[in-house]
């Protein structure tokens, strides 16, 4: 299997970015509020970010297509404490196996990177943007 843990973690950051580009206010409310938030993606790529502040749906396919494997389902639980730290546990289901990865990130750093010039420029470009990938990797850990 070619899928590395770092790749899965960057994918999680990209999914948050997609949510942010769909509705930045609701994404910030969902991710910034203390407590639990859940992101699920079905086999059609439909993503739902849900929590106490409401629900946001968007397409997760642009992030999943960049992984070198056919992802059938995704389930991510985010838990935010009293500071900017967000813990997550994500499960990616493929045809034969499933994979889990956990970690934590600074929500402010991730949201700022999503709203910054680099992210907006990258979103306008097709294909992967190496500088943004590197930034996500630093925020999400390795």
């Amino acid at each position: 299997m070619d899928v590395k843990r770092a790749e899965l973690k960057v994918t999680i950051a990209k999914l948050v970015e997609l949510a942010y580009s769909t509705d930045n206010d609701l994404t910030v409310k969902l991710m910034a509020k203390s407590g639990s938030t859940k992101l699920t993606i079905d086999q059609n790529g439909k993503a739902t970010l849900s929590g106490a502040a409401g629900n946001l749906t968007f397409s997760g396919s642009p992030a999943l297509e960049q992984i070198g494997a056919n992802i059938k389902r995704v389930s991510i639980s985010f838990t935010r404490g009293s500071d900017n730290n967000v813990k997550y546990t994500a499960t990616f289901s493929l045809e034969i196996i499933s994979m889990s990865v956990s970690g934590e990130f600074d929500i402010e750093a991730l949201i700022l990177s999503c709203s910054g010039l680099l992210c907006r420029a990258a979103s306008a470009m097709k294909g992967r943007n190496q500088a943004l990938e590197h930034q996500y990797q630093q925020i999400m850990g390795n």
Partner: peptide, 17 residues
Amino acid sequence: LLPQSFSDTSVTQQLLF
């Protein structure tokens, strides 16, 4: 767990987890 087809290398790679 066995796939319908072994032609997809991503699937065969998963069998070699």
